[in-house]
């Protein structure tokens, strides 16, 4: 998820050979919904997201959030896997 338009994400997905879905949020709908809009955070003054990861369960409820005060830090893979493992089993 980023503010990048679909064509930019399409190129990135191809370059990374990623199987993830790249959602485009150019207006920052979710940045405001989650409170993670970094106003003027990009070098050219455009608003972007604070690095954040959110795990949502099958019912659409937030079950885990990673959010750092540093704009350079990201969630570690082991943190993400631990959060996923902690989700209740699907009935």
């Amino acid at each position: 998820m980023s503010i990048d338009p679909p064509e930019v994400s399409r190129r990135l997905k191809r370059r990374l050979e990623s199987r993830f879905t790249f959602l485009a949020d150019p207006e920052g709908v979710l940045l405001d919904g989650l409170g993670i809009r970094h106003r003027g955070g990009r070098n050219d003054g455009v608003d972007i997201a604070f690095p954040t990861a959110v795990l949502v369960d099958a019912g659409g409820v937030v079950r885990w959030i990673y959010h750092s005060g540093s704009i350079r830090e990201r969630a570690r893979a082991e943190e993400i896997f631990a959060a996923i493992s902690a989700l209740p089993p699907r009935g």
């Binding site: 959602l23 989650l34 970094h38 990009r42 954040t52 990861a53 949502v56």
Partner: peptide, 10 residues
């Protein structure tokens, strides 16, 4: 369930 990761993009 879904994992959303927000990147700074660009």
């Amino acid at each position: 369930p879904a994992l959303y990761i927000f990147y700074r993009g660009h």
